[in-house]
Design a protein around this nucleic acid. Structure first.
Length: 670
DNA sequence: CGTCTCCAGGTTTTT
DNA sequence: CCTGGAGACG
């Protein structure tokens, strides 16, 4: 099956897809068929005889990675077992799993997410005599991230946290653990310190593509550049107007860097929008034109104007959610839309809950992406913590998480004693616990000593089981049973047995997922390390079934790269969009907030609904809310204000029926 | 020394 | 609603 690129693509897309050698910079506007172009480009490369294993496609989110490989698979009809399509972070894990020993870590390293990271910061604070409760560990975690990735330097204000940072780094290394930033920074270090390792990767990945290039951080750019510098077959695709991750270090300055580092590049602009009708695109163009800081471009469409953009001002967030749910129900019933034709977008995850409730009330099937991952639920993390300790007993953070969960009578003071011993001997907590099991001079009471000993024995047993790599889910099932996690849930949720049941059910789901992964015939290396690494990077939508006919509810951030026939954007209010906290941080963030609004608008193909509540419930209280300033940036002639169907009061109802009667010529009394 | 209960706060966006 | 911390209690 030969692919006729010239027939399938427009002129610019064709050039982009058929140029496979040398550096390529593609500026691709929203809806310009970027994914289609990339898909064809890779399919074309494969057709030209480039082996799958030579191609590396880097994306920003798991969702984008999965979408891309799905599309290439369905286009080529090939199994893509050797094609690497992954996020930067997942690629980092892959590299580290293979080569982290060069950097003096062991290959069974743990990956710490935000929760583990803050736990480690607290633990590190204790270690150097700072009081963890007095620290804003979230903010400190962000600072550490900025410092580590070179976005921020130590200065007069923040240098007080430098010793804590150093303790944090030392602990990470001692626990054989890495954080998310390390997944980028350690491969960089590896490549720079061991040129022979870099060379091997360069020889393997001779063709590199980076999607959503405007969202790469300086560190990610650095990593990409190391890989691409020699062969120089590097294709980056981005759109400065859709740069919405600057808070995470994304820097569309990278577009300029790229032009400098690869001066022989070919630059291509994709400006024809195939997605949205004229009115929607006109609104988007007008809105984004208010940004000063951008490459000038104007998207155009061959489609007709389509329908107006509809704005609705519900009284409160409940009415808003009801409106969205009912309209979706109506449209899918009367106009033949499928549920998956609808995208409901929100600025923050917290706004999704009310809308979810309305969907439940209306019986509308939906899926949520973004927000807390299934794997980040407390009960799931507890079980994962057990698995982490089994696979990496030096992991003190996870050790501390499970040592007294469920209760084993090992409290704060005993753990301090254990900590002292561990520090003195330079052991991990687990080793310390293991050592005092038979020691005469244990620093803890006999009761605690016995409990620790039992725990160590327990871990030893299951560690042996799980490392066989066989029946791991069954082993875990038995572990959950053995620690009586169910009893613990009952204890913890005495007033709410339903919650306990729900959590226990989640653990069941987790075990089933684990089992399915373990037994998947496509999974060539099912061992515990690979499983743990995988689920740490996974986000909420990754574990959902695909292609179901469901309404998509998600944050604007999560919606990037997607499109829907009909888009609802909820909470288009000042303080939400633009978000007050963002502007507080820096008034210049208004441009990024506007880009977010732009991204949201440009998801819509046929119809766009914007809602802005008059009041809104925020935690306990009801606050007044006012329409977003961005609404004024949409030209009036593109807008239609939504009038809710009047609540029919009896008097009016009478009138209404009279009118109809009159119209139809039906007499008053029959 | 460990556990339980009550209380306040909620973390913008994600790997 | 859920989580984490403070403080009382056994």
């Amino acid at each position: 099956m030969a692919i006729d690129l010239a027939k399938e693509l427009n002129k610019e897309q064709f050039i982009a897809a058929s140029t496979i050698d040398g550096p390529l910079l593609i500026i691709a506007g929203a809806g310009s068929g970027k994914t289609r172009m990339i898909t064809f480009r890779i399919a074309h490369m494969l057709e030209e005889g480039i082996p799958q294993s030579s191609i590396l496609a880097l994306t920003f989110t798991n969702k984008a990675a999965r979408e891309m490989s799905d599309r290439i698979r369905s286009l080529t009809g090939k199994r893509l077992s050797n094609l690497t399509v992954s996020t930067f972070h997942a690629f980092g894990v892959k590299v580290l799993r293979k080569s982290i020993e060069y950097l003096d870590y062991k290959s069974n390293f743990s990956i710490y997410d935000q929760v583990d990271k803050t736990a480690l910061i607290k633990e590190s604070a204790r270690g150097i005599g700072m009081i963890p409760e007095d620290l804003d560990t979230w903010e400190i975690a962000n600072l550490f991230s900025s410092v580590k990735t070179g976005r921020e330097k130590w200065n007069r204000e923040n240098k007080l946290y430098k010793p804590l940072f150093e303790e944090y780094l030392a602990n990470l290394h001692a626990y054989n653990a890495v954080d998310f930033d390390d997944l980028i920074m350690l491969p960089i270090r590896l490549f720079e310190e061991f040129p022979e390792v870099l060379d091997a990767y360069r020889r393997r990945y001779r063709y590199i593509m980076v999607d959503e290039f405007q969202d790469t951080s300086l560190a990610q750019y650095h990593l990409m550049k190391l890989l691409a510098k020699k062969e120089r077959n590097i294709c980056v695709v981005g759109d400065d107007d859709q740069s919405i991750y600057s808070w995470r270090g994304a820097n569309y300055q990278n577009i300029v860097n790229f032009e400098k580092d690869f001066p022989e590049l070919l630059e291509i602009k994709l400006e024809q929008n195939y997605r949205s009708t004229g009115n929607i695109l006109a609104a988007a163009n007008q809105v984004i034109a208010n940004n000063k800081n951008r490459k000038s471009k104007e998207l155009w469409t061959g489609l007709d104007n389509g329908r107006s953009i509809e704005i609705f001002y519900p009284d409160d967030d409940l009415k808003e959610a009801e409106f969205i749910a009912q309209l979706i129900a109506t449209l899918s019933m009367r106009e033949g839309y499928k549920y998956h034709d609808f995208g409901v977008l929100v600025r923050t995850n917290s706004l999704a809950a009310t809308i979810e409730n309305a969907f439940l009330a209306e019986n509308i099937p939906y899926k949520v992406s973004g927000g807390q991952s299934f794997f980040q639920r407390k009960e799931i993390k507890d079980i994962i913590a057990y698995l982490r300790v089994l696979s990496n007993p030096d992991d003190d953070v996870n050790f501390l998480r499970i040592i007294n969960t469920p209760r084993r009578g090992i409290g704060r003071v005993s753990l301090e004693k254990l900590r002292e011993l561990a520090d003195e001997k330079e052991w991990s907590l687990y080793s310390a616990a293991s050592a005092i099991r038979y020691a005469e001079d244990a620093p803890v009471s006999d009761k605690v000593k016995a409990a620790l000993g039992e725990f160590v024995t327990f871990i030893e047993y299951y560690r042996e089981q799980i490392l066989t790599g066989k029946k791991m889910a069954d082993t875990t099932r038995s572990l959950v049973d053995k620690v009586d996690y169910w009893g613990y849930l009952i204890m913890e949720n005495q007033k709410n047995e339903r919650a306990a049941r729900w959590k226990y059910k989640n653990i069941g789901i987790f075990l089933d997922l684990f089992e399915r992964w373990e037994k998947d015939p496509d999974n060539d290396d099912p061992n515990i390390y690979n499983y743990l690494n995988r689920i740490t990077l996974i986000t909420r939508d990754d574990d959902q079934e695909e292609n179901n006919d469901m309404v998509n509810l998600m944050t604007v951030h999560a919606s990037k790269g997607l499109e829907f026939e009909i888009v609802f954007l909820a909470g288009v209010e000042d303080t939400i969009m633009p978000h007050a906290r963002s502007l507080e941080e820096d008034p210049d963030n208004i441009e990024e907030e506007r880009r977010l609004f732009y991204v949201a608008i440009t998801r819509a193909k046929q119809k766009l609904y914007l809602t802005s509540c008059k009041t809104r419930r925020v935690s306990r209280e009801v606050i007044d809310s006012s329409p977003s300033r961005f609404l004024e940036e949409i030209p009036d002639h593109l807008i239609e204000y939504h009038q809710p169907e009047e609540e029919v009061e009896s008097g009016e109802a009478m009138d209404y029926f009279e009118k109809i009667r009159a119209k139809l010529g039906i007499p008053d009394k029959v």
